[in-house]
Design a protein around this nucleic acid. Sequence first.
DNA 1: TATTGTTATACTCTATAACTATA
DNA 2: TATAGTTATAGAGTATAACAATA
Lengths: 167, 167
Amino acid sequence: MDMEERGHSEHPEALRLWLRLLTCTQLVEKQVRTQLREQFDTTLPRFDLMAQLERNPDGLKMNELSRRMMVTGGNVTGVTDQLVTEGLVERMQVDGDRRAYRVRLTARGHQVFGEMARQHEGWIVAAFEALSPREVESFYKLLGKVKQSQQDTKSIGAGLPDKLETA
Amino acid sequence: MDMEERGHSEHPEALRLWLRLLTCTQLVEKQVRTQLREQFDTTLPRFDLMAQLERNPDGLKMNELSRRMMVTGGNVTGVTDQLVTEGLVERMQVDGDRRAYRVRLTARGHQVFGEMARQHEGWIVAAFEALSPREVESFYKLLGKVKQSQQDTKSIGAGLPDKLETA
DNA sequence: TATTGTTATACTCTATAACTATA
DNA sequence: TATAGTTATAGAGTATAACAATA
């Protein structure tokens, strides 16, 4: 690689790894976006939001969705609005705090998401079919280390409860 | 803040892997984009384009850049225009084909990219510092299998090129 | 004052398609 | 006709900041 030749690179392995990681993720992600659009006329953020709600049948507040989807609040409002228009989610009042909403799937949203999730899983399984179960497992663990250190780095001082590692 | 909390399945390993992969990539990518903007007032596509040219000192044609960056031609024109405005790249005529250009780094572009690449590598090394050299290597190989099968699947005949990995 | 959520705005990123100028 | 590149447009995706209502 060029950077190596120029003497700037003491750790070219990490760089190569990152570039390949980015390429792979983009390949799969592009495919998922295309399929979601073609087969369900929806987008990845909308699918993400519904997936969050599927896991939380009692609903989630807007700021909880914002945190989990890693985007700012204004965007969650927009995505939610679209899904409300489509009749897939609804905003429920929260007892004791009239500022907040609890967003949850409608019955139809639950049903529609079920079909999307089934297809989605098929695309993902296909994307990783080159790996054996043992390789998938070891891949998963490697990513766990990266993720952990990333999050530790980001939240210096703020002791975060790792409720994120549910999977 | 976690997108791994998505989806449900009977075959959850590949899905879990994908969600974690997506989360990790987004964490690192977001950091890189932010740093590129804050420290160099630039973007990832602009950085990518310059990285391609750094690796090809004689320059690349627009369609070659398009292929390598995995985006359509119109976008390459826009990114190139910006970099030309900044004096970092230039369009050279191609002998024997007056339709085509050869885009290459200017002297200043080469120098500026050098500094960006140095910093960039630091961010990436930090992102993966939780992994041992052996783990990095095995990670890289696993991704290679995924990438290979993705490309075989996607393109019936004309393989999709690497993004930044093309040497 | 702080928090929840919305609105308004702007910019990046991308794809598509029509267009030009060569080939 | 086919190819190289540009232009125009549209939409996704995101961040920021000002704002209203409530706490």
